[in-house]
Design a binder for these strands. Structure first.
Ligand SMILES: NC(=O)c1ccc[n+]([C@@H]2O[C@H](COP(=O)([O-])OP(=O)(O)OC[C@H]3O[C@@H](n4cnc5c(N)ncnc54)[C@H](O)[C@@H]3O)[C@@H](O)[C@H]2O)c1
Ligand SMILES: NC(=O)c1ccc[n+]([C@@H]2O[C@H](COP(=O)([O-])OP(=O)(O)OC[C@H]3O[C@@H](n4cnc5c(N)ncnc54)[C@H](O)[C@@H]3O)[C@@H](O)[C@H]2O)c1
Lengths: 215, 215
DNA sequence: TTTAACTTGTGAATGAATTCACAAGCCGCT
DNA sequence: AGCGGCTTGTGAATTCATTCACAAGTTAAA
């Protein structure tokens, strides 16, 4: 019954974390509509899963529901925010102020969820010094110095694939522990650094496979 | 020796397909450097997996290697392209010519892999009629008519979350069977339609969780 | 206070994915 | 032709994830 986020006694699967994220999104929707309680069954229907799955996912972290009633929407939302570490602001830097970097820098969805973008970095003199909406584009040469001073939590990589590993090495060398990579390449980092790669070409290939292999 | 991709006797896991995509990328790299054979071990090292995993993944589709030697790089690359359905051109439409839609429309990585973007659609009169690089932005009102004529294989959704389900319904109604969704919302579609969602906020929350729950 | 209708939380059962481990095959050398 | 070094392909074993199924708790109503 302790309130510090997550007892984390066993390793939590990635798929579980993604579902928790999804549940939180639905809860926020319900919160907005003023509903006070929700059952695992309703949550499951929204998320395309089963009620047993919902309850099992939550049970890794405690027991938040009331038998016969369901879950308190605001309480469960709060618990999920705690578990996911969303009770605080996370600071982000974007490396690569190109097309996709600019789209991310200008995206409001991140700030709304507590992710604050400090700056974007580029090596193109024409881009350095400009702003993307209100995010400054800084010289990549300042990267390490700035990171040591501002201590961002997450680096988002939107540089060409050939440059990506060297940027990983640079940000890791000054203490960044989490990286979101958009370059279509496999990155290597120490075990205490979490790297997630979003590879859109791979997603399209998944669709190509699905379209090709249907009986 | 049939050349139609995949015997597909059992359902292939999503994770397997993603790895096949990754293997293909490494093989193309090796091909470029003129190497002729590669072992499962080398492929595994590059992809951050194990050699047994590589061999098991490939074994679902046939046996392409030579014991004692490894795999022929060009042959295996060809087989993977066949399996993934990359032997042909896939036609894509983008719905939502906003920031992320524009970035995707202008991205060269897709065309290089056989994904050809026909057009982007928007409901904003200021955007309609313009071009994103060489991709035309068309009126969303033409969506169904154009799809029936041009028969795109894949629809990419980059509209606001509230609009996403209605766009799904529209493209599904005229026969689209594969959707790549960037809106942060759960979509519902008939079982014969494959929907993949790329949810960047969810990826960031995964990083937030990892940073928060480390012992 | 009793009952009926619900819903949670969780072990146990099932199902899926990964890893192990080794026989079988290939190559080059002597 | 035989041997040693390597590497595949694959059942069997293991590990991990999901689903089942039900006791236990809650509410509301009579
Ligand atoms: N545009 C897309 O829709 C899209 C989709 C999927 C993946 N990606 C990937 O995202 C990455 C960026 O793509 P993009 O389309 O934005 O390309 P882009 O060329 O528009 O942007 C890349 C930016 O990185 C900068 N850059 C290059 N080397 C750098 C370095 N060493 N340090 C700092 N900045 C550097 C460039 O000046 C440029 O501004 C690529 O790896 C690409 O494969 C892009
Ligand atoms: N920009 C990002 O980096 C980013 C990141 C993650 C997710 N997303 C998601 O991608 C989607 C688009 O984001 P964006 O930043 O490009 O927003 P945006 O506002 O720049 O683009 C949305 C575009 O869709 C058009 N549109 C709206 N309703 C439409 C309809 N019914 N039919 C056709 N077109 C319509 C708008 O005119 C606009 O051009 C959103 O769902 C957003 O949550 C964006």
């Amino acid at each position: 019954m302790n309130s510090q986020a997550a007892v984390s006694v066993k390793r939590i699967a990635d798929s579980t974390v993604r579902r928790l994220s999804a549940y939180l999104r639905f809860l926020e929707d319900f919160e907005g509509r003023g509903l006070m309680t929700i059952s695992s069954e309703e949550l499951a229907k929204r998320g395309g899963t089963t009620s047993a799955q919902v309850r099992k996912d939550l049970s890794f972290f405690g027991s938040f529901g009331k038998r016969g009633l369901g879950y308190s929407v605001p309480e469960l939302a709060g618990r999920l925010r705690e578990i996911l570490g969303l009770g605080r602001e996370w600071k982000i830097v974007i490396v690569g102020a190109g097309k996709i970097g600019a789209a991310l820098a200008q995206y409001r969805g991140f700030r709304q969820r507590g992710f604050s973008i400090l700056a974007a970095y580029d090596n193109n003199p024409e881009k350095i010094g400009r702003k993307l909406e209100d995010i400054p584009v800084r010289d990549i040469d300042q990267l390490e110095r700035d990171i040591e001073r501002e201590k961002p939590d997450i680096a988002v990589l939107t540089v060409p694939a050939e440059e990506a590993q060297s940027v990983v090495n640079r940000v890791v060398s000054v203490g960044v522990k989490a990286i979101l990579n958009f370059a279509p390449t496999q990155l290597h980092a120490p075990a205490d650094v979490t790297v997630k790669t979003v590879n859109m070409a791979m997603e399209l290939e998944g669709l190509s496979f699905a379209l090709t292999n249907r009986e």
